[in-house]
């Protein structure tokens, strides 16, 4: 039985430079394994150890995701092997295209009992990929998960919802979105780093898997994000009591303190 972890190799958008004409420059950013997915990999390691399952990482993206540094970074975190779909066509893939690609990878792998992934994409923060992938596979999906135990294809899960901590029981195969604080992702130790390069890393293209990417709309233009323009009124704070009084009357005048 295989436990699969879908991980992302991407840059943090905070490090991108957006020019006033909407050009987004990621050249000064360095891609990393998303912190959210590192947590999912750690959970996968615990489960693989407990069940004896194979732990396989999958990822989809442009050139960068198939580089040695990317695959080794993933393997160093405890995956037994990685399976990567790398293709220029995936450079700007959104949630739907990425999910379609990962589905093909999972079909290709076979014998998958559980898929784990972090709860957010590093670069879009949308938190929907796991559900789209579940829909394509026809498998149940649960998110905000803190704890998973497996017994064959029987899974016991604990997850947080607004009403509290919910205990669930499911039959696999299943997709699970793991919360960012479910477990603490271990820092890869020296032995893990040095042995990463010896573990298998399989790279395929979209053509190899027979994937045709779905359309995700046509981008007409991109602009820098501008929030509503703010007044930026500075209140003199030499005398805190006076500053407070001034702020209160300004807020009252603006109607912000109406009950």
């Amino acid at each position: 039985m295989r436990i699969v972890v879908a991980y992302q190799w991407a840059c943090d958008p905070q490090e991108a430079l957006v020019s006033s004409d909407g050009k987004i420059d990621f050249s000064r950013a360095k891609p990393t394994i998303s912190d959210y997915d590192a947590v999912a990999i750690e959970m996968g390691c615990h489960l693989a150890e407990a069940t004896g399952a194979e732990l396989i990482g999958i990822s989809a993206g442009g050139e960068a995701v198939a580089t040695a540094i990317a695959t080794k970074a993933a393997l160093a975190r405890g995956l037994h092997e990685v399976f990567v779909v790398s293709d220029p066509g995936l450079d700007s893939a959104g949630t739907l295209a990425t999910a379609v690609t990962l589905k093909a990878a999972i079909d290709n792998l076979g014998d998958v009992g559980l898929l784990l992934t972090g709860d957010s994409s590093l670069d879009s923060g949308s938190k929907t990929l796991v559900a789209v992938l579940a829909g394509l596979l026809g498998w149940p999906c649960v998110t905000d998960v803190m704890k998973v135990t497996m017994d064959g294809d029987s899974l016991t899960i604990e997850r947080t919802i607004p009403e509290g901590i919910q205990g669930l029981h499911l039959h696999g195969p299943v997709l699970v979105g793991v919360t960012s604080d479910a477990v603490k992702a271990k820092v890869p130790g020296m032995k893990d780093v040095l042995s990463a390069g010896k573990k298998p890393a399989r790279v395929v293209s979209l053509l190899d898997l027979g994937v045709r990417l779905p359309g995700e709309g046509e981008i007409l233009s991109v602009e820098k994000m501008a929030g509503p323009s703010r007044q930026q009124i500075r209140i003199n704070t030499e005398d805190p009591a006076q500053a407070a009084a001034e702020l209160v009357s300004a807020l009252r005048a603006a109607g912000a303190l109406d009950a």
């Binding site: 739907l96 938190k127 929907t128 829909g135 779905p214």
Partner: peptide
Amino acid sequence: GRRPSERVFLGTVAASIMAPIIT
């Protein structure tokens, strides 16, 4: 919406109709 179950519904539906997801 953006609550956990709502996201799962949205994603599963999007998959069934091949709809891109916009946030």
